[in-house]
Amino acid sequence: MAIPVIDFSKLDGEEKAETMARIANGCEEWGFFQLVNHGIPVELLKRVKKVCSQCYKMEREEGFKDSLAVQLLNGLKEGKEEREQLQNLDWEDVFILQDDNDWPSQPKEFKETMMEYRRELKKLAEKVMEIMDENLGLEEGHIKRALCGGDDLEHHPFFGTKVSHYPPCPRPDLVPGLRSHTDAGGVILLFQDDKVKGLQILKDGEWIDVQPLANAIVINVGDQIEVISNGKYRSVWHRVLASQTGNRRSIASFYNPSLKATIAPAPQLIDQTDDQAYPKFVFGDYMAVYAKQKFQPKGPRFQAMGSL
């Protein structure tokens, strides 16, 4: 079993209807799919891989050796308490890129390359949302406006890029790479390692690999798209396994709502079923709950929003 791989370029040809249907299936049945021929230049993707790997070696690798996960594993006495601590940590080096925060300074090409990449990813995210609108029968731009907080586009959506590395782990049986969770926000675009696997999704009660595929962009549905679609699209549980070999690279970009955006099921989708399956809430309130419950079932998070 493998997650769908979709040729994005076929949206411009005779196979548009079939491609739209495959994207709908990816959102409805999987919550994840991979895009190839998505329009982001391969040359840019090669530069992104290079600068992120160099950045880890030059600025991050030594610091990871002092992380709590490494310290606990190095000092492990095989006791129950230590094992429980490790299960609640992630074997991950991570930093976030936003337009207004501090970025790594090395290598010198890092910032220019990643700014160009983020511009391309943001455009791709908005194309994907337009397709979601059309597949759901929503008016053009509905999802983007919802994430911005309204028709006047008063608030900007949050667009962040999480750069992660999962170094070789001597005891992958004891510590996860990244604990299982669903993503809180809107549309997530992942440029994952094309050689070292580790990402898995939960499908029909079974954990399956998100197969490494050169130059593909993995798309997954966040919790807020689930709400806007009134449950037609579903965010799904996913995790990263630690590995004894390889240093897995992962670059995930998140097109999320403004913290002030009010999120609710699209009225057209409520009319179709006469059932509003999710409450209306402010995304910032949801994030306050998510920060405490990220690795717990998502149902109670939505319930908490309904009680506000």
Rank of each mutant, 00 (worst) to 15 (best):
Ile3Pro: 11
Pro4Lys: 08
Ser9Glu: 15
Ser9Gln: 12
Gly13His: 09
Ala24Leu: 06
Cys27Arg: 01
Cys27Gln: 03
Glu28Lys: 08
Gln34Trp: 01
Val36Arg: 04
His38Met: 05
Val48Tyr: 06
Cys55Gly: 08
Tyr56Gly: 10
Lys57Ile: 09
Glu61Lys: 15
Glu62Gly: 14
Leu68Met: 13
Val70Pro: 10
Glu78Leu: 04
Gly79Asp: 15
Glu81Trp: 00
Glu82Thr: 09
Val94Lys: 14
Phe95Gly: 04
Gln98Gly: 04
Gln98Glu: 12
Asp99Tyr: 07
Asp100Trp: 12
Trp103Ala: 13
Lys108Phe: 01
Met114Asn: 08
Arg118Phe: 05
Arg119Pro: 00
Lys122Tyr: 09
Ala125Phe: 03
Glu126Leu: 15
Lys127His: 07
Val128Ile: 14
Ile131Asp: 01
Asp133Cys: 11
Asn135Glu: 13
Asn135Ser: 12
Leu138Trp: 05
Glu139Pro: 02
His142Tyr: 15
Arg145Ala: 15
Arg145Met: 13
Cys148Glu: 14
Cys148Lys: 05
Gly150Tyr: 05
Gly150Arg: 05
Glu154Cys: 08
His155Phe: 14
His155Cys: 08
Phe159Gly: 11
Tyr166Val: 05
Pro167Lys: 07
Pro170Asn: 07
Pro172Trp: 04
Val175Cys: 06
Gly185Glu: 10
Val187Tyr: 02
Ile188Thr: 15
Phe191Pro: 00
Gln192His: 05
Asp193Gln: 03
Val196Gly: 02
Leu199Asp: 07
Leu199Arg: 01
Lys203Ala: 06
Asp204Asn: 14
Val210Arg: 03
Asn220Phe: 11
Val221Met: 11
Arg234Leu: 11
His238Phe: 03
His238Gly: 09
Ser243Cys: 10
Gly246Ala: 12
Gly246Lys: 06
Arg249Ile: 07
Ala252Asp: 02
Pro257Ala: 09
Pro257His: 03
Ser258Pro: 03
Leu259Val: 04
Ala264Arg: 14
Ala264Glu: 15
Pro267Cys: 08
Gln272Ala: 15
Thr273Lys: 13
Tyr278Trp: 06
Gln293Ile: 00
Gln293Pro: 00
Lys294Gln: 15
Arg301Cys: 02
Ala304Glu: 11
Met305Ile: 07
Ser307Val: 07
